[in-house]
Amino acid sequence: MSIQHFRVALIPFFAAFCLPVFAHPETLVKVKDAEDQLGARVGYIELDLNSGKILESFRPEERFPMMSTFKVLLCGAVLSRVDAGQEQLGRRIHYSQNDLVKYSPVTEKHLTDGMTVRELCSAAITMSDNTAANLLLTTIGGPKELTAFLHNMGDHVTRLDRWEPELNEAIPNDERDTTMPAAMATTLRKLLTGELLTLASRQQLIDWMEADKVAGPLLRSALPAGWFIADKSGASERGSRGIIAALGPDGKPSRIVVIYTTGSQATMDERNRQIAEIGASLIKHW
C-alpha cells in the first residue's frame, strides 16, 4: 500500500482517536478583511474532515458561482459510474476541433488520438481543461445529471445548469451553476471519506486533486513544508474566484476548506493574494 493509499484508508480510523479540534476566530477576521479589500462577498467554511463538524464559517449558506470547482464533483460522478460498472477509466473518447472550447490546454493536443476517461478527469482537475469537462459531462448525461447525482448524495443546493464556458457567467442573483460553501464542503467530504465511492475511487479523486497544477498562487502558496493539500480552484466573470481543498499537517488531510468570492473589481492577482492570506491565517491558527 502506497503512502497515498495509506492516508485515505486511515481517514475513518483516525476519527475515533483524534484530539479535539478548536476553532480560531482570527481567520474570520481575515475573511472579513478580504471582503473589505476586494469590495466583494466572500464565503468561507472550515470543516473537520473526520467528524464533519463546522469549525468556522462566514456566509456559509449564501450562493456563489461554482466556477471550475464543479470539476471535482463531476469526476466524482464519473467515478461513481465506474464503480457501478457503467463506465471505464480506460475508455478512449474521440472528439473533433468543433468540440474544443476556450481554455483547453490538454485536449487541444489530442485531437488525433483522443483521450481516456482517466486522462480527461486528470486534465479537468489538474489543468482545469474546459473541453475535458464538457466531454465528461456528456458521458454522464449533461449538467442536469450532475445535479441529480448531487441530489442523490443529499446535496439539494449545488446545481450545474450549463456547459463550459457559459457556466462562468456569474450573474448576480442567478442561481444557475452555483453552490453554497456549507453544501460544497459537505459534499466534498462525502466524496473523499464516505461510502458513495469505493476506496480506490476515493483515492483516485484525491490523487487528481493533489496533482492540481493551476492553484499555486492560492492556499498552496501559504503551505508550510510537510503539509498535505488536494485542491481545485476556479475563476469566472465578475471578479469571481474560489477554491475547495482538503489539507492538513503531517502529510495527511484533516480539514476541508472552501473559499468563494464574487462581485469584485480587483485584479486576479489581488483576488489570489487575499485567498492566500486567508490560508496563511488558517495555518497560523491551526
Rank of each mutant, 00 (worst) to 15 (best):
I243W: 03
R159G: 00
S57Y: 08
A123G: 04
I125G: 03
I229S: 02
L89A: 06
L188W: 01
E145K: 13
D113S: 14
K190E: 11
G239E: 05
N168A: 04
P12R: 06
H285C: 07
D83G: 04
V214M: 14
I283D: 01
S221P: 07
M153S: 11
R271G: 07
Q97D: 15
N168L: 00
S264M: 07
K53Y: 10
D212N: 13
A23V: 14
F14L: 13
K232G: 00
T158N: 01
D207N: 14
T138R: 13
C18S: 13
I256M: 04
A225P: 15
G239Q: 04
G216T: 09
N168G: 04
A170S: 13
S221H: 10
M127K: 08
L55T: 06
R81C: 05
N152A: 14
I11A: 10
S96V: 15
R59S: 14
E87A: 05
Y44C: 02
E166S: 09
E237C: 07
S57M: 10
N98K: 14
L135G: 05
M268D: 07
R238H: 15
S240A: 13
L146R: 01
D212G: 07
A133D: 03
L47H: 00
G279A: 10
L197T: 02
D269R: 10
A245T: 04
T178F: 02
V157A: 11
M184F: 07
S80F: 13
L192S: 03
R91K: 08
L74T: 05
L135K: 04
T147A: 04
F14I: 15
L55Q: 05
I125V: 12
F6S: 10
A222F: 07
E175V: 14
K213N: 09
K53F: 09
N168T: 03
E169R: 07
A170V: 13
P20D: 15
A246F: 09
Y95D: 02
R159I: 03
L38Y: 08
S221N: 12
H285S: 07
K190V: 11
E164P: 03
K232E: 01
K109E: 12
F13T: 13
A222N: 12
K53S: 12
T179C: 02
E56A: 11
V258I: 09
G239L: 04
L10A: 13
Y260W: 02
D99H: 11
R59N: 08
Q88C: 14
L100S: 03
N152S: 15
L223M: 11
T262A: 12
T262H: 11
V78I: 14
P25R: 08
T158P: 02
R118S: 15
A124R: 00
I3A: 09
S281I: 12
D99M: 11
H285L: 07
P25Q: 10
M115F: 00
D83Q: 08
V8I: 15
V214H: 07
L218D: 00
P181E: 00
R255H: 03
L111T: 13
L196H: 15
R63Q: 05
R238Y: 13
V8D: 12
L38N: 06
A211E: 13
A40G: 15
V78T: 05
V82K: 05
T126N: 06
R189Q: 12
K30E: 03
E35K: 00
P172T: 09
I244K: 01
P181I: 03
D212H: 05
L135H: 03
T178S: 10
E119T: 05
G85V: 05
T267S: 12
R220P: 01
Q204A: 11
R271K: 08
G85T: 06
S254G: 10
R81P: 00
T138H: 14
Q37L: 12
